[in-house]
Each structure stands twice: as structure tokens, then as C-alpha cells.
Design a protein around this nucleic acid. Structure first.
Lengths: 340, 340
DNA sequence: GACTGAATGTAGATCGATCTACGTTCGCTT
DNA sequence: AAGCGAACGTAGATCGATCTACATTCAGTC
């Protein structure tokens, strides 16, 4: 039963008693098709269960496929972005294809896969990819980059306003009366690439602390793996002059910090925690994490929108920034006491 | 800058001063290539940044692409399965491509997209797709179905043992002393399709309740959307003779139920809750949900493994079942009192 | 030195679709 | 009735790769 050759346009043409070109016209809804021929061809298509091969199509023209590179499959914030992208593309003729990158993967294999498939455009999230490589890629095909604060001559950029978001978080903690505020973020490698959200958030943290004369309380804890986050938090709490608040780079890290705080019976006035992204579970009663919402759906929607514009012919670069908002929940409170 | 035609095998051949066939041989590592020619061609490939077009390739032979249909992008249990699949495929020559289905989407557009791309095989999760349609699809190309308890002549099946898992959950509650156990599950449409995990878990629930002489306490609450889950739980608690325990179809529903319980100040001895899937956050201290683990990674890994075997030529159908285990946490306890 | 066979390379058909260029038919005008 | 343009169909080139069949070269053998 396997290996029945797939139904091709030639089969349809033969069945309908017309030429291949005629079938092609019907499929593409092109000019020069009589109602009578249309119905004959459509009947044949229906009967044979014919579906045009994107592959064959893509050799010449567009594939009506847009690619989405995703490097952290299990990251709920990224999934939300993807979800928005899917919703935006649904009513169009295009199909979204996701290439997941291997966890600790090397290079840009996933992006290459999308290029090899001749996707008409790419949405790329990769914070790791080198800028010049991306620049070159974008000079050959439409590319929208998400969550990077680069400047580029070729690709469009969609990003949440991480500067505003991080300031919202810091201002919230400071206005509650916190001085000893630590920052919990990812491993070196992730935060040092200039312009990535982790790097920007870290920078704003450092800037705010310095501006407010709190430079001596600056503490940055790093967690390379999710499991590391708890240890990093413990280390913070065990340090001399421990923080009364933690601004975490994202909700996942924040929730791990919360885990440690709860373990030690610390309340929000002992240790306030702010996250970033407002993932669904941050709103759960048992977690109730104060966080920054940047509506990931919108990021995804904008990315697709800009990409389709590009495919449609726009040539000048465009950037789109979404405004984040602060969501106050129970994980933050006034500090119990604050000695300078 | 846009629209530079992509580099083709012909360009490489011209640059290297050899025939197209020769370049093709080098790429495919085929017989009949002198070291000297190999290096000349490889240099040309390198210099031009040539990448073979999967599309052109797929017209004739395999595309070295396998498709993964995903209908709930933001479902952490499914993401974990996908994650396992990605890990399993990483060391092979194949590339995994994900087609996300639109949320409330019609039909099987995502699967079609993968077929149209001429993927060499498909991993399908769709609990909605009609069996006969899948059967027909699988007669044309290798297909592995996840999380369905069908019998099939054409596709392979990978699934957690939902019967065993659901029994583990029920036995746990019963052995704690619970009699008034309710079941929280999805909307009608999802649970009625025979052989899907929700349907099987529901069935086991009904069976266990009946076997133990608890038929009079049977209560099934349904939530069509995630938001509905809280209302459904409230309704359960407001009903006459309310349950002392809830067996939820999955962790997402369980966590919503937990939310309601905590809101009302109910402890585990007032209302015990068991979930299913052991998503990452179920282990969070603030949630601490008793649940059934079915190691989604393994499901994903098996799916890819079986699919590659199929592509490699295996013809007889194979099923693979993973054994779930019970993870006891703080959301379950002995009931405070139990009147019959 | 002719013969054999392995090693190396090329020409050209082929895959499934698109698209241009062109031929035929038909209805309408003058 | 001739002329004309719109409507409808088709032939055949084309896209980028693969693969079969074949040509050429070269070393080794008798």
C-alpha cells in the first residue's frame, strides 16, 4: 500500500481530459478558464484527492510558506509569540512552518532548514545568531527579527520596549521602598550579546541602581540552566547584606526565586520578586507574581504583518515596538525594614 | 539588495568548471569523485555560499524533512513531546518541521501543509482528525500517531498508557480514603472521540467508580475553555454532596481547580486534586500538584524513532506504549471526613 | 600492444509545477 | 461578409536538483 506515487497535475489533466496548463490555471485561479472546464478540472481534483506540491511550485515562484525559527520550544513566552503569529497568518494564503532549534545546538541549522525549504520569508527569534550573518541572510530574503534591539539595514525588527519594561519593574520596587535590589538573569553568554532582551534588562537594572545612588547594592546572579536559578537565589540570600528584592529577567527565573523564598518562609516584605513576560501561570493564585506584560501575541502578530508587507514589496526597513505594562500581584510589597 | 537570485547548482558548476552532475555527486557524497574535483567543488560551494534547495530535491526523491503537527502551541505537555522529538532527530540527517494548527481551526490544514511540502513522514498529534482520513493519509506516507488508542492498519501509534495512568490516579485517591471523587475534563467534543486520552481517562474514572461501588458519587465537570475550568470547579463545590477529591484530565485543569480551592481556603484534606502530565510547574513549591508523569520526552523520541524505521522500509505496524508513574505531592491528602 | 575493468566525468532525461507565447474559437460591429 | 478583439486552451520552455547511461582515461595483465 505504501509507495503509491503521489497524484500529480498530469494525472489530473489526463483524468479531466485537458492540458496540464489548464489544470494549473484552475488551481491558481488564473485568467482564461471557462466555467465548464473549471468544474471538470475541479471534479478530477476532488476525485483523485490531488494536492499541488509546494516543492515543485517553490522551484520557480513563491512557496507561500513563511518560516519561524524557535530556539526554546518549552519557553512559554516564546510560545505565546508563536501563537500570535499563527493567528495573524491564519486568514492569509500563507502557511507558517516552525523549525525548532536543538537545545544546545550549534550554529543556525534551523534557520538554514527554512531557507532550504525556500520559505518566502523568515521570522527569527535567535538571540545567539551573529548580526553580520543575519544581515547577509536578510539581504537575500525578507527577514523579521524578534526581540533584538539591533539596528539593521536589511531586516525589520519587532520588539517589546525592554528599556521601558525594565524601568517599570525597577521603579515599582524602588517606590515600594526597596534599596537592596538584585538582578537574576541567564548565563554570561546570553546576556553579553548586545541588544538582546536579557542584556538590555541588565543594563537598565545597572543604570537605575546607579542613578538612584544604590550602586553599592548592585548584585547580579546568573543561572545558566533553569535548575541553577534556585542555587543562584540561595547564594544571593546567603550573601552579606542580602537583597530585599529581586528583579528577574523573566518569569521562569522569577518563579524559581519565588520557590526558594517560599521554602524559607519568606513573605513578599522579606523578599519581593518581579518577573517579566506575564506567562499564564504567573497569574495563578498560588504564584501571584508581579511582572511585566508585553503581550507576546502582539509581537507575533506584528512580526507576521511586517513580513507579509516585505514579501509584498516594501523595501525600507521598519521597526515596531510594543509598550509593556506593569502587573502588580502579591509577590511584591514594602520591605519590612531597610537599613542603608 | 533584495531579489538576488539564489545560488544554484549551475552557478557552482560554472565556478568550479565542472558539470552539474559532478557537483551533485560531491554534495551527495556519491561514487566517482576524485579528491581533486571534490576540493574544487567544495571551494566553489563555500565561496558562493551555496545551499541545495530542498524543494528541487523533493520533486524527485526524499526531502529529508519530517513533519510534526501541533494543534496546541501553548500546551506544555505537547511542547515536552516536541522537545523529545527534536532531541531524537538532532543527530540524524533529517530536519524536523512543525506545522502549528490554528487554535479553533477547521479540518487538517496543518497536516496538509506538511504533505504539500513533501515531508518524508509525519508525526501527528491531532485528536480531532477522523480515523478514516488518517488511515488514508497513512496509506500514502509514513505516519506516527501520538496519544491515540486506535487500532490502525497503516500508521504506528505511540501513546502513554492512559488506562494505567488513570488507574494510578484513582487508586491513589481511593486508598487515601476518598469516595466522593469528581472528574474534571474538557468539552464534550474532545472527550467523545473514542480512543483519545481524555476519553480513555474519563472511561477509567467511570469504571473505577462503578467497580468500587461509588457510582452514586460520579460527577463529571466539563470545561470547554481554560477559563471555564474555574467555573466548572465552583459548580462542583456548590453542588449537593460536593466531592472531596478531583481527578483532573490534565495538569492545566488541575491547576485551575487548585486555584479555586486555594481561593476558598480549602486544604488538600478538604479537596484533594490529582492532575496528569507532570508539567514543569506542577513541581513548583507553591503548586505542588500530585500528578501522573508520562515522560513526554520519551513519547516524542519514540515517535521519531518509529517514523525513521518506517521511512527506512519497515512495513508492519508497530505500537509503543510508555508506562506512567504517580508523583505524590501536597495537593492530595486523606479526606477530613467521609460520610457515605 | 591489445584487452579488461575500475575510476572519473558528462550529457540529457526526469521530477511537478508555472508561465509565456501562440493558436483557435466565438460573438459583435460595421 | 469581413474584420476584430476577447475568451479559452495548449505546446513547450523553465525552475533546481537527481540519476541513468554512456564516454573517456588510466593502470594493470597477458
Amino acid at each position: 500500500m505504501r509507495g503509491q506515487r503521489a497524484v500529480t497535475i498530469t494525472d489530473v489533466a489526463r483524468t479531466a481530459g485537458v492540458s496540464r496548463a489548464a489544470v494549473s490555471k484552475v488551481i491558481r485561479d488564473a485568467y482564461g478558464v471557462s466555467p465548464e472546464m473549471r468544474s471538470r478540472v475541479e471534479a478530477a481534483i476532488e476525485r483523485l484527492g490531488y494536492r499541488p506540491s509546494v516543492a515543485a511550485r517553490a522551484i520557480r515562484g513563491p512557496s507561500f510558506t513563511i518560516g519561524f525559527e524557535l530556539h526554546e520550544i518549552e519557553n512559554p513566552a516564546l510560545n505565546r509569540i508563536l501563537s500570535g503569529a499563527v493567528a495573524e497568518i491564519a486568514p492569509t494564503d500563507y502557511q507558517l512552518i516552525v523549525a525548532p532549534a536543538v537545545a544546545g545546538g550549534e550554529g543556525h541549522r534551523a534557520i538554514d532548514a527554512l531557507v532550504d525549504l525556500r520559505a518566502d520569508g523568515l521570522v527569527v527569534v535567535a538571540p545567539h545568531a551573529a548580526s553580520d550573518w543575519l544581515e547577509k541572510l536578510a539581504s537575500r530574503m525578507p527577514v523579521v527579527l524578534l526581540s533584538r534591539h539591533d539596528r539593521s539595514e536589511n531586516y525589520d525588527i519587532v520588539t517589546g520596549d525592554d528599556v521601558a519594561g525594565a524601568r517599570l519593574a525597577m521603579h515599582h520596587l524602588i517606590s515600594l521602598g526597596h534599596h537592596r535590589i538584585a538582578h537574576l538573569t541567564r548565563g554570561e553568554e546570553t546576556t553579553t550579546r548586545e541588544g538582546t532582551p536579557p542584556a538590555v534588562r541588565l543594563e537598565v537594572y545597572l543604570d537605575e541602581m546607579t542613578q538612584r545612588g544604590l550602586a553599592r547594592h548592585i548584585k547580579v546572579a546568573r543561572a545558566a540552566t533553569p535548575g541553577d536559578a534556585r542555587r543562584a537565589t540561595s547564594d544571593l540570600l546567603a550573601s552579606a547584606n542580602p537583597p530585599s528584592a529581586i528583579f528577574a529577567m523573566n518569569d521562569d527565573l522569577a518563579m524559581e526565586a519565588l520557590h526558594v523564598a517560599q521554602e524559607r518562609g519568606l513573605s513578599a516584605s522579606d523578599l519581593s520578586i518581579v518577573g517579566y513576560d506575564n506567562v499564564r501561570l504567573a497569574g495563578h493564585r498560588a504564584i501571584s507574581l508581579t511582572t511585566i506584560d508585553q503581550s507576546g501575541d502582539d509581537l507575533g502578530r506584528w512580526a507576521v504583518r511586517l513580513l507579509l508587507e516585505r514579501i509584498d514589496g516594501r523595501t525600507q526597513v521598519k521597526r515596531e515596538t510594543t509598550q509593556p505594562s506593569l502587573i502588580v500581584r502579591n509577590s511584591t510589597d514594602h520591605p519590612r525594614s531597610e537599613q542603608h
